[in-house]
Design a protein around this nucleic acid. Structure first.
Length: 483
DNA sequence: TTTTGAGTTGTTCGA
DNA sequence: GTCGAACAACTCAAA
């Protein structure tokens, strides 16, 4: 008697290599039916934004093509997840659903719903890990507490078992006698139409498993050795740019881990850079660990005393920040890079986040929401944990007095102004001496660069040192209120 | 149970 | 220009 098929339900694990749910299905010797279900109702209040949907389209295209090369298909369905899985089970006679587990609160609820809907009708729901190096349940302190500080978390995690790597991508997938019907991806409307704002995204990214592999190879060849220093330079290609690939599971953290560890004859400099890079993967792990244990992380300050923080709801200033019109070049360059490319350099993310939260005193949730809508790597865990970190209200957060100075940060990390010139072209001709503080330039210099402050480029919307004092006072009020 | 050392990414001020 | 201290205290994690 032929095996009943197994549904492999893809979510944010859009790859064929190091995929345990898929490997287990293959090991069972059954026909495999790969499925992706678009179900915005299951996302809770965190429905993916435009940039994320653009990426998803590319990633699904790539996965479908990779499956077709292996004699298989990707079945696309849109609607309630349980209902669609239920239909697929009926249509195909499948007796099992395999999937990679997720950690977001809404995804965990969905997983429970699917399990309790399918188990009673004799369809085995099998859950597999692999989207993290370390499952959240497996990292606990000696007293079995959840870690709230990164360094001990990462030390303990790394001291445990080496992350496992599942098999490489299969050469062929066993197919069912008949395929269930599939939606056409084009009908899902994941791509922008009018206006087509995705041009800058198309230029810079290649969604999909192959693109992810190529990006890792490129990074390891070109940037890993200098990563420790260059990762802070937005004017250089010093970072891995793997974040969206990781978010969609086109590459697994275990694959990255093992590739880095396998690098032979590491120079001390490369060794230090590799450790630093893996620690960045570690921050991703830590963010998931926090989200898993504190499901309200995306909405509510981790530190309870922040409930009384004197935030200012200032729509005009928020809009200026979003549009990259704050008058601080490094901030504006970052915000425009985000809009144009769907991504922002990590160093600049900290600068713009600090500016929103501390210079403008606008709630971190507003920045979190904007990033969520505009980043191709928008990730609930990393986004929430990082915004809370900057705001100072998170676990293991930045100290309140750490208020980035946008001029100093620019001079330090974009010393020639190349990054600013790329994304704030109206300042491109300004001498480097003034590129991070155009309002300090003599009138002659501004005129020579074709800049009219207040016309072609805004005056600073707040004065740095006044804003700094106000932020310190706001944090002071928190302390007074607590005592 | 108590103690101790440490905690991603910075800025400013004054010597 | 460079350098060290102050910025606050608190919580966490392990000994």
């Amino acid at each position: 008697m032929p095996h009943a098929p197994i549904l492999v339900w893809f979510q944010s694990d859009l790859r064929l290599a190091d995929h345990r749910a898929l490997q287990a299905a293959l090991a069972a010797g059954a026909p495999v039916i790969p499925v992706f279900i678009l179900d915005d109702s299951a996302a809770g209040s965190w429905v993916p934004g435009g940039a994320s949907r653009w990426w998803l389209h590319g990633s699904l295209t790539s996965l479908a093509r990779d499956l077709e090369h292996r004699g298989s298909r990707l079945i696309l369905r849109r609607g309630g997840t349980l209902a669609e899985l239920h239909k697929l089970v009926t249509e195909t006679g499948a007796l099992a659903v395999h999937f990679s587990r997720r950690y977001e609160p809404a995804a965990r609820m969905l997983e429970d719903e699917v399990k309790s809907g399918l188990d009673p009708i004799g369809v085995a729901c099998k859950r597999f890990g692999g989207s993290l190096l370390f499952e959240p349940e497996s990292v606990r302190s000696k007293t079995n507490d959840v870690y709230k500080v990164f360094t001990p978390f990462w030390r303990a995690a790394c001291a445990g078992d080496t992350p496992r790597l599942a098999a490489a991508a299969p050469k062929r997938l066993p197919t069912p006698a008949t395929w269930p019907v599939s939606d056409k991806l084009e009908t899902w409307g994941l791509l922008p139409t009018s206006p087509d704002w995705a041009g800058g995204l198309r230029d810079g990214w290649t969604p999909g498993e192959t693109g992810a592999q190529e990006q890792l190879t490129l990074f390891m060849a070109d940037a890993l050795t200098a990563y420790k220093e260059d990762r802070d330079r937005p004017d250089r290609p010093g970072t891995s740019r793997l974040s969206p690939h990781l978010h969609f599971g086109e590459i697994s953290p275990a694959m990255i881990w093992h590739e880095i560890k396998a690098t032979q004859t590491m120079q001390p400099r490369t060794e230090a850079s590799a450790a630093k890079f893996l620690a960045e993967i570690g921050w991703r792990e830590f963010s998931y660990h926090l989200l898993f244990n504190f499901p309200h992380l995306p909405e509510t300050a981790f530190r309870a005393d922040f409930a009384g923080f004197p935030w200012r709801d200032d729509a005009a200033r928020l809009r200026a920040w979003q549009r990259g019109e704050t008058g601080y070049p490094i901030v504006d360059a970052g915000m425009r890079q985000l809009r144009q490319t769907g991504w922002m350099h990590n160093r600049v993310r900290m600068v713009v986040a600090s500016f929103l939260v501390k210079h403008l005193l606008i709630p971190w949730q507003a920045g979190e929401a904007w990033f969520w809508d505009n980043l191709v790597d928008a990730d609930l865990a990393s986004n929430a944990a990082s915004w809370q970190w900057v705001a100072g209200c998170g676990a293991d957060a930045a100290p309140y007095f750490r208020i980035f100075n946008p001029m100093t940060q620019g001079e330090k990390f974009d010393p020639d102004g190349g990054y600013v010139r790329t994304f704030v072209p109206e300042l491109a001709k300004l001498r480097t001496d003034y590129i991070h503080a155009p309002w300090t330039a003599p009138a002659l210099e501004l005129a020579a660069a074709g800049i009219k402050l207040g016309k072609t480029y805004p005056h600073p919307i707040v004065d740095h040192s006044e804003a700094r004092d106000a932020a310190l006072a706001a944090f002071q009020s928190l302390k007074v209120a607590a005592s």
